[in-house]
């Protein structure tokens, strides 16, 4: 179990220069001296150090770590993936891809390698191949939630919202407890102009996230974070449905729209909620006009 989760992490790795990796890297001398004493945890740290070094572009440090790891665990799939990530940094994409292909030829059951391949292809701009790799991986390893999210992301960046919704629905099936997947689904449905579906999904997110404070009635609470985002989504949907009535009945997923009276109360409710949040964050009264208000809210959330 632990192996598969750490492989998942490696599969999802993206290089980014942040303070955390800088900090870890600055402790490298101490780490390289003490890792042996820490047993298994020490080896974990070495792996993290290697990734941090790659983040910061310090290939030599990464190589040093990689050598330690591959001496200790020859043939480990985890080290192999790490080697691949190291290759991606300096070698050309073709070499990295052929390295991954080689790995897959000997052991096609390592899902992390498929994801790395898709990531390399994506960076090259070969979205179609990346989609192909990911979907053939997900066909076998259905339970990789992250993979489905990534696939939806790939579809999103070429505006294939219907496909993105399909991949997201798999992610929802696999992790129905995660409100962020619902939010993503709602946002994608909004982009796909399936407003009734989007509205219901936003409301679902609200329902899932608004009662974190046990002792406060939802009506008295101030929406924050994901709940606030969801309320803005609700507001956007109701606004759109009220101003463009033809969207009410044009839902590709045949979602039943709310009744007109429900719709207007929802509009009022979401406006009220958003105003509360606006007042609370900025301390001034929000703009009156619907459009200006939505824009102001969007700025706050960003």
């Amino acid at each position: 179990m632990e192996l598969s989760s750490s492989l998942q992490k490696l599969g999802a790795y993206q290089p980014r220069k942040n303070d955390k990796s800088q900090q870890l890297l600055s402790r490298k001398d101490a780490l390289l001296k003490t890792y042996v004493a820490q047993g298994d945890e020490g080896w974990d740290l070495i792996e993290k150090l290697a990734l941090a070094a790659l983040d910061q572009g310090e290939v030599q440090v990464a190589d040093e770590c990689l050598k330690l790891l591959s001496d200790k665990f020859p043939g480990s799939p985890r080290v192999e993936v790490l080697t691949g990530i190291r290759m991606e940094v300096t070698e050309s994409s073709e070499i990295a891809l052929s390295f991954y292909d080689e790995l897959l030829a000997t052991d096609s059951s390592n899902a992390a390698i498929w994801r790395r391949k898709a990531a390399v292809l994506r960076r090259q701009g070969k979205i179609d191949q990346a989609v192909q790799e990911l979907s053939s991986m997900l066909d076998t390893f259905y339970t990789e939630v992250e993979g489905w999210i990534e696939l939806a992301d790939l579809y999103n960046c070429c505006h294939q919202y219907a496909y993105a919704l399909q991949s997201l629905s798999h992610a929802l099936l696999l992790a129905p407890q995660n409100p962020f997947h619902f939010l993503q689904f709602a946002e994608t449905a909004y982009l796909a102009l399936d407003i009734p579906l989007s509205l219901k999904m936003y409301l679902q997110v609200v329902d899932m996230t608004d009662d974190d404070d046990e002792d406060l009635a939802p009506i008295d609470s101030i929406p924050t974070g994901i709940t606030l985002r969801a309320w803005l989504g609700v507001k956007l949907c109701t606004h759109k449905l009220l101003t463009e009535p033809r969207l009410v009945n044009s839902s590709p997923s045949q979602t039943a729209p709310p009744t007109t009276s429900n719709l207007s109360s929802l509009d009022e409710l979401s406006t009220e909620r958003l105003r509360t949040a606006y007042l609370n964050t900025t301390g001034e009264s929000p703009p009156k006009a619907d459009k200006a208000f939505i824009d102001a809210m969007a700025k706050i959330i960003q």
Partner: peptide, 19 residues
């Protein structure tokens, strides 16, 4: 679908009258 009647559910939760 869990979100089938999400609109009425939310309205109820926030004490709005449901026509």
């Amino acid at each position: 679908w869990v979100a089938k009647d999400a609109d009425t559910r939310i309205l109820q939760k926030y004490g709005r009258p449901i026509p």
